[in-house]
Computed example of a mutant assay.
Amino acid sequence: MLMVDEQTEPGIGEGPAKAISVSLPEGTVRALRDSAGGRGVSAIVAAAVEEHLRNQATLAYLEEYEREHGAFTPAEKQEAADVWARAEEREGQWREAV
Rank of each mutant, 00 (worst) to 15 (best):
E14C: 03
G13F: 03
A48C: 04
G38N: 14
A75S: 09
E64F: 10
I12K: 03
T28R: 09
E68L: 11
A47D: 13
A31F: 15
E63I: 08
A36V: 00
H52R: 13
P74K: 01
E68C: 09
R67G: 15
G11F: 07
A19E: 15
R54M: 09
V45M: 00
D34E: 15
E14D: 07
L59W: 12
G37Q: 02
V29F: 00
D34F: 05
Y61K: 06
E63F: 06
I12P: 02
V41H: 02
A31W: 14
G15C: 03
S21I: 11
T58P: 07
E63N: 08
E64Y: 03
H69D: 06
G11S: 12
E64V: 06
S21A: 15
G38Q: 11
R67E: 14
Y65P: 05
L53S: 07
A17T: 12
D34M: 07
Y65V: 13
P16K: 10
A46C: 09
V29N: 01
R39G: 02
R39Y: 07
E14L: 02
E64K: 06
S21W: 09
A36G: 00
P25T: 03
R39A: 12
E50L: 01
A36L: 00
E51M: 14
P16Q: 13
E14Q: 14
H69V: 05
F72C: 11
A47Y: 05
E64S: 12
Q56Y: 04
R67F: 13
R54K: 10
E76K: 04
A47E: 14
L24I: 08
H52M: 06
I44G: 01
K77D: 11
R39C: 09
L24Y: 04
H52V: 10
D34Y: 05
A31V: 15
A36C: 01
E51F: 13
G40E: 02
A43C: 00
L62E: 08
G27C: 01
P25Q: 05
L59V: 15
T28Q: 14
S42H: 05
I12W: 00
E76V: 12
E50S: 12
E66R: 01
Q56P: 04
P25S: 06
E68W: 08
G13M: 10
R33N: 12
A19K: 14
A46R: 13
G11A: 14
E63R: 09
T58I: 13
L24A: 08
V49C: 02
E51C: 09
N55A: 14
P25K: 07
K18I: 15
S23H: 13
K77C: 15
A17I: 10
E50D: 15
R30E: 07
G27N: 10
R54I: 10
E14M: 05
V41E: 03
